[in-house]
């Protein structure tokens, strides 16, 4: 508990805040460990229930603590809570895997439960929720902007990687050169690349004023998009190259000997057989995009990263979390969705 949103607060132990109920989530976690031993399909439900219960209980306790306090006072979640959340989450994922369930389902269940608690107002007194209510529109706008920036960077990287992938596939010399160039980009620290692009772009804009008229700016989303796309190009390009080469050489040879033209071999043999490999690269790139776009907040590209940096500048931990948590969730969601696509493609090809 803290007197306002910036000052560090005093710690209140779980038993003091929650009473005897404080031990229930821990008990559930212990029960989950036991149930895991028994290999029950219900085992992952126990740590999930623990998470939901802990959230609800802390929410209620925060509401009680806030009674009679000035409006600037905040009740935040302590380190112990986050530790509990992380270990219970890991346990749930592990047990879902052991029980033969998709780990993504466990994550989805936890997310839905969290959303339900939020809807019922159980979490309203927590400082994170207070912070969110104060900046609701900004957070939502940042979320959409973050998604749009990530998608745009991914699209830009794809537009570059596709022709380069084909070129590298056709010629070993081109492959070596492109590989070296794209790997070099990876070596440049991302902040340095962002910084480097700003003067480069302003030079370009100075030379070609028509670009400025078209809405391009040296600071803001343009350099961020270009830098992020430059990083994504390598995993995409690698995956494309790997996918094109994934087909059994005997099948390609047979296709050629049957009288398929090169274009048909690519469309009918190489691409369908390489899709799972390519989907893998797309997944890596999408997750990277969501993470890297956050850095764009530093150069005025907006998005959730801007919230994180604003929070850092103000030493407001809740604001940082408000930016960081959605970034983590987005990355996890993108990973799970594209992983599903990947396995489906791999199964279909066999």
């Amino acid at each position: 508990m803290a007197p306002n949103r910036l000052l560090p607060g005093e710690a209140i132990g779980a038993p003091a805040a929650l009473g005897p109920a404080a031990h229930l989530p821990a008990l559930l976690l212990g029960g989950a460990l036991l149930a895991g031993r028994l290999r029950s399909r219900l085992a992952p439900a126990l740590p999930l229930a623990g998470i939901v219960l802990a959230l609800a209980a802390t929410g209620l306790a925060a509401a009680r603590l806030m009674e009679g306090q000035p409006p600037a006072a905040r009740a935040s979640l302590g380190a112990g809570f986050w530790l509990f959340l992380a270990s219970a989450g890991l346990l749930a994922l592990e047990q879902a895997r052991a029980a033969g369930l998709r780990p993504a389902w466990a994550g989805l269940a936890a997310l839905l439960a969290g959303v339900a608690l939020w809807r019922w107002g159980l979490l309203d007194a927590l400082s994170l929720a207070v912070e969110y209510r104060a900046r609701q529109e900004a957070v939502q706008a940042a979320l959409w902007r973050h998604l749009a920036l990530s998608a745009a960077a991914l699209g830009l990287a794809l537009a570059v990687a596709l022709p380069l992938g084909w070129w590298g596939f056709r010629s070993a010399r081109a492959e070596a050169a492109i590989g070296a160039a794209l790997s070099f980009v990876q070596v440049v620290p991302s902040l340095a690349l962002f910084g480097l692009l700003i003067p480069l772009l302003s030079l370009l804009l100075g030379a070609v004023p028509a670009l400025r008229a078209a809405g391009l700016q040296a600071i803001g989303p343009a350099p961020a998009l270009i830098a992020v796309a430059a990083y994504l190009a390598l995993p995409l390009w690698r995956a494309l190259l790997g996918g094109l080469g994934a087909a059994d050489p005997a099948a390609v040879e047979a296709a050629r000997a049957m009288g398929m033209t090169e274009r048909r071999i690519t469309a009918e043999i190489r691409l369908p057989l390489g899709l799972p490999v390519f989907a893998g690269g797309l997944r890596v790139a999408a997750v990277q995009a969501i993470g890297l776009v956050a850095l764009g907040g530093l150069i005025g590209a907006g998005g959730l990263g801007a919230l994180v940096f604003e929070g850092m500048a103000q030493f407001a931990a809740d604001l940082i979390l408000l930016g960081a948590l959605p970034i983590i969730l987005l990355a996890l969601l993108a990973d799970a969705a594209l992983r599903g696509l990947e396995t489906r493609l791999a199964e279909g090809g066999r």
Binding site: D248, A250, A251, E253, A254, G259, E268, P272, G348, G349
Partner: peptide, 19 residues
Amino acid sequence: ARLRRSIGYAIQSVGLFPH
């Protein structure tokens, strides 16, 4: 391509299209 379509071709590794 047209020449190859007029000639049958079978190889040891068979090279069936797995998909």
